[in-house]
Simulated assay, not measured.
Amino acid sequence: MIQIVFENTHFIICDKPAGVLSTPSRFEEDDARLCLGTALQKEKGFQIFPVNRLDFEVSGLVVYAKTAEAHRKANAWFEHKTVKKTYRALTTGQSYAHIPANVPNEKLKLTPEVGNTFEWRCRLLRGKRRAYESPQGKECLTVAVFRGMQGDYQVWDLNPVTGRSHQLRFDLSRHGFPIVGDKLYGSTVELADNRIALRSYRIDFANANGASALGLPEFLEISSL
Rank of each mutant, 00 (worst) to 15 (best):
E7A: 11
T9L: 08
H10A: 06
I13V: 08
I13Y: 07
P17N: 14
G19C: 06
V20S: 04
L21W: 04
S22W: 07
S22N: 12
P24S: 10
P24K: 05
R26Y: 13
F27Q: 11
E28V: 12
E28F: 13
E28M: 08
D31G: 13
R33H: 13
R33P: 10
Q41W: 10
K42W: 07
E43H: 13
E43L: 14
I48M: 09
P50R: 09
P50G: 11
N52I: 14
R53F: 15
E57Y: 07
S59H: 06
S59E: 14
G60N: 09
L61T: 11
V62R: 05
Y64H: 13
A68P: 09
R72L: 09
A74K: 13
W77V: 06
K81W: 04
K84Q: 13
Y87V: 05
T91V: 01
S95A: 15
S95R: 05
H98K: 01
H98E: 02
I99K: 01
I99V: 13
A101D: 12
P104L: 00
N105G: 04
N116K: 15
F118E: 00
E119W: 01
R121T: 13
L124T: 02
L124R: 00
K128L: 11
Y132R: 04
Y132G: 01
S134H: 14
P135F: 02
Q136E: 13
G137D: 14
K138S: 07
V143C: 06
A144T: 15
R147F: 03
G148Q: 13
M149Y: 15
Y153K: 07
W156S: 03
V161P: 01
T162C: 01
S165V: 13
L168P: 12
G176Y: 01
F177H: 04
P178D: 03
G181D: 04
K183V: 14
V189N: 09
A192Q: 05
N194D: 14
R195M: 03
I196Q: 02
A197N: 11
L198M: 06
I203M: 11
F205L: 12
N209Q: 10
S212M: 05
A213I: 05
L214Q: 08
L216F: 07
P217H: 08
P217I: 07
S224A: 15
